[in-house]
């Protein structure tokens, strides 16, 4: 299936990292389905985002270095970008979720009061 031959020193760690990264990502996304509340579900994908992506990108780095016969590190930029960006996403999504649950709760209580009157 794969077009070119890779040396042994590249295939062994790359395969290991790919298997670990795939498992971590799939468990993280499974958490998106299994965990009960939204705030608990926030934690599932962050597994795949950090260590899963990191493993796959390191494997990609190893393989493309072996392919081009010189060290290639441009996958490193994606890792750095995701690490820098993930708190911004998490903070905004979290703030939106808290705001929406608060508004919903207030509306529900207003509805209850109106029913009692």
């Amino acid at each position: 299936m794969i077009a070119t031959e890779f040396p042994l020193w590249a295939t062994l760690p790359a395969s290991l990292l790919l298997v670990i990264g795939g498992l971590l990502t799939v468990i993280g996304s499974l958490g998106l389905l299994r965990l009960p509340t939204f705030f608990a579900r926030m934690h599932g994908p962050s597994m795949g985002n950090t260590l899963g992506t990191g493993c796959v990108l390191i494997a990609s780095m190893i393989l493309s270095s072996a392919l081009l016969h010189r060290p290639v590190a441009h996958e490193f930029i994606i890792t750095v970008f995701i690490v820098i960006v993930s708190p911004v996403t998490a903070m905004l999504v979290m703030r939106a979720a808290r705001y929406r649950t608060r508004v919903k709760e207030e509306r529900r209580q207003q509805g209850l009061q109106r029913e009692q009157e």
Partner: peptide
């Protein structure tokens, strides 16, 4: 610190109080 807390699964940075003295995490 926000990067560290968010990139560690199991903890998410929620918000910082305006005077930067109290941090809320989940």
């Amino acid at each position: 610190l926000a990067m560290i807390i968010t990139c560690t699964p199991g903890t998410v940075w929620v918000e910082l109080s305006p005077d930067r003295s109290m941090l809320t995490i989940h």
